[in-house]
Design a protein around this nucleic acid. Structure first.
Length: 285
DNA sequence: CACCATGTTCCTTG
DNA sequence: CCAAGGAACATGGT
């Protein structure tokens, strides 16, 4: 899925098109995508409501909406998650719906589309998942001392632990490899084996890598709409004028067999907890 | 056909 | 009870 940076960039984009728009009708084409909310429930809550702003928490999107019910204001929050293949965008009503449209909101002349090929994502009234997350890596809540302390409590490999979202939110399979590469720490090290200095270095790398990615994604022209073919460029398709390749952005991810950008040793791919990890066996100890 | 995929949750095992 | 690993979910690309 889109990880924290991709979601952040999407949220910033949606905030330029969504606030003020009113939901005239809700079409749930895949009941699974709104679980555990029932489709009628979502339609009932969201019909007639207006978008105010979109926020991000980890990889989750929070759509803050407002509805006037007999004079009194009612706040409604929809929790969104892109899963592995989700996209959310606003397009004209005349645009044909994609094959895997999961939820469609009629906004008048436009519509909001949540499309999701594999249906791992969500668009739901149940916001509990976002409340169980660890600290936001780019907020002051993410403190190096507490981070180091959390790591001491786990015997798991650091790479798989970064993916659980409870020590820190928003890191996925790509940026876990990237952060460990920048910190020069082997993904196979157990959390508790990290020296305080290494934990601190990882803390810094996590923030630097995520920040960098957000900046890159905000700079490149992206195609947020439904038409764009996903070509790996920051998850979305290219917009007009975007560079041909994004590979410069990621230093180790998906580079098995290529020379390490730092020492030329060949980058290695291993599997941890069923997922690919990429690292340089020489730089990362 | 085989294997791979930017995620989360549930089940089993130790 | 807890932690860790694996399967499941579902579809498409190579």
């Amino acid at each position: 899925m889109p990880e924290l940076p991709e979601v952040e960039v999407l949220v910033r984009h949606l905030n330029t098109v969504l606030p003020g728009k009113k939901v005239l009708r809700v079409d749930v084409l895949r009941a699974k995508s709104v679980r555990p909310t029932r489709p009628e429930e979502l339609g009932h809550a969201l019909s007639g409501a207006s978008f105010q702003r979109v926020q991000r928490r980890g990889k989750y999107l929070l759509f803050r909406c407002q509805r006037t019910k007999q004079g009194s204001r009612q706040e409604i929050t929809v929790l969104g998650h892109l899963g592995m293949t989700g996209r959310m965008y606003v397009v004209s009503q005349t645009e044909p719906l994609p094959r895997h449209a999961a939820v469609v909101l009629n906004l008048g002349t436009e519509r909001f589309v949540f499309e999701d090929t594999r249906y791992f994502g969500r668009f739901s009234l149940d916001t509990r998942a976002a409340e169980l997350l660890g600290p936001e890596p780019l907020s002051p809540e993410f403190v190096p001392g507490s981070f180091a302390l959390c790591l001491r409590a786990s015997k798991r490999p650091i790479k798989t632990r970064l993916l659980t979202q409870d020590i820190v939110a928003g890191i996925g399979n790509i940026y876990a490899s990237e952060a460990l590469f920048q910190a020069r720490i082997s993904p196979r090290r157990t959390c508790r084996s990290l020296r305080p200095l290494e934990a601190r270095r990882l803390w810094r790398s996590i923030r630097a890598v995520l920040r960098r990615a957000i900046t890159a994604g905000s700079t490149i022209p992206l195609n947020f709409g439904g038409e764009g073919t996903r070509d790996g460029l920051f998850y979305y398709g290219r917009g007009p004028g975007a560079p041909v390749s994004h590979t410069e952005r990621l230093r180790v991810y998906d580079r098995a067999g290529e020379p390490c950008v730092r020492c030329k040793t060949l980058v290695r791919r291993i599997v941890q907890a069923g997922r690919s990890t990429f690292y340089c066996p020489a730089c990362q100890r």
